[in-house]
Design a binder for these strands. Structure first.
Length: 268
DNA sequence: ATGCCGTGATATTCACGA
């Protein structure tokens, strides 16, 4: 079976458990990385994932906000739960697993949203977001042939013009300001990361992974943004077989405002 | 198009999301 990895900002794993189960039953990715689980570790619904054929559940959660989890059918070991910006937030978990003849290090991230005002001098949340992206430079992709790296998650930045419904109208909106998009792209390239979602679907094709709850009709308005990402080291690019953005999930019962993305690789 | 919504908390409104 080829390797498949999914990422999904679930906006409360407990409230959303029915659609997480639906997704896993219907798509059966080998690994699922969740963000915004909003669930302390002691309350994480581990048994529900075991029952669906996912014996490995790596979690880093806290009360109320944030939280990430990596759910897997194949054995994984947790290698790191890194604290960024000395905030004590649960926004990262790294796991390692075997695929083909490689050892793969998988980073699961939830980057801060950044608040409303895109000025780090007056908005500490935006300062935090920019600092977080800079600190992510410490997480680089594997550059040799034997190991491989994957970085997924809700990065809360839509880097390209074709990653938003209107480049011009969003230039001053947090998630698409030049300081964010340039910072993210600089960090990505500096770390040796490849933007896998754009390999088979390059600009000018649009890609969105998030649609606001606030639209009257999210589908009709279609004012989305590509906030969720799947990156890898260069040595995995040739095995990439495709990326699927599961847009239909935005219309499921009590949906998250983000949809799942699945990457498939020609690796056992 | 900075909100018409959605979530969690010790809650009857607030902070936060993006």
């Amino acid at each position: 079976m080829p390797l498949s990895i999914a990422t999904w900002n679930i906006n409360s794993v407990r409230l959303r458990l029915p659609i997480v189960e639906k997704f896993l039953r219907e798509h059966q990715p080998d690994l699922l990385c969740l963000q915004e689980t909003k669930c302390p570790d002691e309350f994480f619904p581990v048994e529900a994932f075991h029952a669906l054929g996912y014996p490995f559940v790596a979690i880093s959660g806290q009360k109320g906000y944030h939280g990430v989890a990596t759910i897997s059918r194949r054995p994984v070991e947790v290698t790191e739960k890194r604290e960024f910006c000395s905030k004590g937030d649960c926004r990262h978990i790294a796991t390692r697993f075997e695929a083909g003849d490689r050892s793969v290090l998988l980073h699961n991230f939830y980057v801060p949203a950044g608040g409303d005002e895109p000025d780090p001098e007056i908005n500490p949340k935006f300062r935090h977001k920019l600092d977080f992206i800079e600190e992510m430079r410490d997480i680089a992709a594997a550059r040799d042939g034997s190991d491989a790296s994957i970085l997924v998650g809700d990065l809360n930045i839509a880097p390209l013009e074709e990653d938003v419904w209107s480049h011009k109208q969003l230039l001053k909106v947090v998630s698409h300001t030049p300081v964010e998009t340039e910072g993210l792209e600089s960090m990505r390239k500096g770390g040796g990361w490849q933007d896998l979602m754009r390999i088979h679907t390059p600009p000018p094709q649009k890609i969105y992974t998030w649609w606001s709850y606030r639209a009257r009709d999210w589908q009709a308005a279609d004012r989305g943004r590509r906030l969720d990402h799947i990156w890898s080291s260069e040595n995995l690019v040739e095995s990439l077989r495709g990326i699927e953005v599961l847009k239909e999930a935005r219309g499921w019962e009590r949906p998250s405002d983000h949809v799942p993305i699945i990457a498939r690789f020609a690796l056992d």
